[in-house]
Design a protein around this nucleic acid. Structure first.
Length: 297
DNA sequence: TTCTTTAATGTCAGGGGATT
DNA sequence: AATCCCCTGACATTAAAGAA
């Protein structure tokens, strides 16, 4: 449905969204929430001189590992001073150049402007201006992205204008999903406003216990949530079925349960701590028992 | 053409993980 | 406490399509 005639495909970068202002000889990087991120990217002192004109650019702030792949977790760690992770600025859009706003200009034209600026931008060490993917379809673009180890693809409608701030349907993000079956070992109540379940504590069988995989709250709603709430109530248990300690912030209001219910969870792989990343509940697997699941990934 | 229904689009709140 | 990155569903609004 995403044809190359109407859509252009770019790699999706995993980092912090940032606006880069090059105005009056100074560089200023701002997060989506309006916070100053300028100090996160050293090595941009020469940017105003190289660029030659004032500009506001849309970009993503990413930390790259040795393999060239983005590592989200390393970004915030940089401030701790421990790891010296090089931070790059991936520039993918031009919003305002030399006194002219491009917000209402179609993406195709904005990309042309960006390509004109690209040779100068690339003289700066931390700056990356990624090429548009040479793909005839969304599926082909995903294949390319997978080869390059990216986390996904962003499809941009060629005639779309730029809508500041809000999420836009002119840009469609396609990420690689993983689906995993996990066992429910407990739950946490929702906030005072919402009733019943807030999130599920899940894991995979590891010997006679469960290896903790984190919480799943997104997608836990409607009839499925009510159904699960009833069933879990009947499986209540005093001791945690998980192996090891889980941390006070989790255990404080956790309710443990006999590990019997298997659910399917969609996610983006595991974090450095071995938890599910961006998990969302897909449904209950009544055809499966905890014993059917294999240990590990 | 105009009115009504439907689909697309946008906004918001509540869940997640992580770090300082 | 913040901050950042998300995902999902409910609801409101807007745009498009169908019927009269």
């Amino acid at each position: 449905r995403l044809t190359a005639a109407a859509w252009a495909f770019e790699l999706k970068w995993d980092g912090y969204r940032a606006l880069v202002g090059v105005v009056g000889g100074e560089v200023r990087i701002t997060s989506r929430g309006g916070h100053d991120l300028t100090d996160r990217v050293p090595g941009l002192e020469a940017l105003p001189g190289e660029l030659g004109v004032d500009a506001v650019l849309d970009a993503e702030l990413v930390a790259l590992g040795e393999d060239g792949r983005a590592r989200f977790g390393a970004l915030a760690a940089r401030e701790a001073g421990g790891e010296d992770v090089p931070v790059s600025l991936v520039v993918f859009d031009a919003l305002w150049v030399d006194g002219t706003s491009l917000l209402r200009t179609r993406w195709e034209r904005r990309r042309e402007v960006l390509d004109e600026l690209a040779p100068r931008l690339r003289r700066l060490d931390p700056v990356i201006v990624p090429e548009v993917l040479e793909a005839d379809s969304g599926a082909e673009a995903l294949d390319l992205a997978r080869e390059q180890g990216a986390e996904g693809v962003v499809a941009k409608k060629r005639d779309s204008s730029y809508r500041p701030g809000r999420r836009t349907t002119g840009w469609v993000k396609e990420k690689f999903w993983t689906s995993t079956e996990v066992v429910v070992g407990g739950w946490r109540p929702g906030r005072s406003g919402s009733r019943g379940l807030g999130s599920l504590l899940v894991g995979v069988p590891d010997g006679d216990r469960l290896a903790y995989l984190g919480r799943v709250g997104s997608g836990l709603t409607g009839a499925v949530a009510d159904e699960l709430a009833d069933e879990l109530d009947g499986l209540a248990r005093k001791r945690s079925p998980f192996r090891g300690e889980l941390g006070r912030d989790v255990t404080r209001d956790a309710r443990w349960v006999l590990p019997r219910i298997v659910v399917e969870v969609r996610h983006h792989g595991l974090t450095d701590h071995g938890h599910l990343r961006h998990p969302s509940l897909r449904g209950i697997r009544r055809d499966k028992l905890p014993g059917d699941l294999t240990t590990g990934s």
